[in-house]
Computed example of a mutant assay.
Amino acid sequence: MNELISLDDAKALIGKVRRWHHKFEIIPGLVTPGSYDPQDLWNKLRIDNRVSGQRVLDIGASDGFFTLRAAEKGGEVTAVDFRSKDRHGFGVMETLTGRSFAYEHANIFDLDTERLGQFGIVLFLGVLYHLPDMMRAFHKLRALCSGTLFLETHCDNSPSPDFAMARYYKGDSLAGDITNFWSPNRLCVVDMLSDAGFDVVREEVWGDRMFAEARVSDDPERAYKMGVAYGRIYTRN
């Protein structure tokens, strides 16, 4: 906590943010006016005792709840968002907590994997369905992840659960938001992760949402398939 900032000044800073997504206690006694409480999802991650000493990548960091929590648990966190820090609450979170994070103002497809290196834990929460090319995103994630990927997404399980499929949303037909493109079903998510080089070890579906914990695989057949798909051919064993 930044002890040089009074509670009234902290409230004023929070009020300057046009829209908060994350609703959380940003400093003791002060809760942000977000539309979504991310604490339940943090609990689903079960990483309180797994973060310390790890490089953590938080893709789609938004107002910084998950970035902050991972840092409080001892992680070395890099945050990614397609908006700059000051276009949402992330910058205010840094100011009020007295913390400073490595921050990539970038689309996931533009992340420089060679410069960033790999991360033991990657958080990919509430992002997948906003992306027009889901497989390309998973391919990028595999290059960035050396350990475990945690994913949460909108998930349409109204079709048959026996077939991997995804529903496409034209314009703003999903929740009035033009950034929503896809709603894959559970099996589609699991199969895409598999082809991209991840093995799902834990999953949960509730309503129209899905959570999965997946670990990296070095299966050369899967690497070859992604190499064919994205123009980099790997040698088969």
Rank of each mutant, 00 (worst) to 15 (best):
L41V: 15
G89P: 13
V190K: 15
A212P: 00
D199P: 01
G74W: 07
L149W: 09
Y168T: 13
P33G: 09
E152D: 13
S173W: 07
L96M: 10
K225M: 12
N49Q: 12
W20Q: 08
H21M: 09
V80P: 05
V205Q: 12
H154W: 15
I14T: 11
R115G: 02
D177A: 10
Y234L: 13
A214D: 01
T153W: 07
N2K: 14
L144E: 05
E3S: 15
R232N: 11
E76R: 06
L7D: 15
I121G: 02
K16D: 13
F138M: 14
A196R: 07
E76K: 07
N180E: 12
P159Q: 04
V77A: 04
I14Q: 07
S52V: 01
P132M: 08
I178F: 13
V190F: 07
D162L: 14
L125Y: 04
S158V: 03
T113M: 00
V56E: 00
L7C: 02
L128K: 07
P38R: 01
S52T: 04
L149C: 06
V51R: 06
V216T: 12
S194C: 05
P220M: 03
A61T: 12
G89E: 04
N107H: 15
G75R: 10
K170G: 02
I178N: 12
G120R: 14
D199R: 11
F24R: 08
A70Q: 04
M210H: 02
M93I: 06
D162N: 12
F65S: 03
T78D: 05
A166W: 01
G117S: 06
A166S: 15
R99H: 14
W42A: 08
P38S: 03
F90H: 08
E114A: 14
K11N: 15
D195E: 11
I47S: 10
G34P: 08
G197N: 05
F124S: 05
K85F: 11
I178L: 13
E213H: 02
V51W: 02
V127A: 08
K11Q: 15
S6Q: 11
I121D: 02
I178C: 06
F24K: 06
F101H: 06
S183N: 01
Y129E: 13
S160L: 08
P38C: 05
S194T: 10
R222W: 02
F82A: 06
Y234D: 04
E104A: 14
L187A: 06
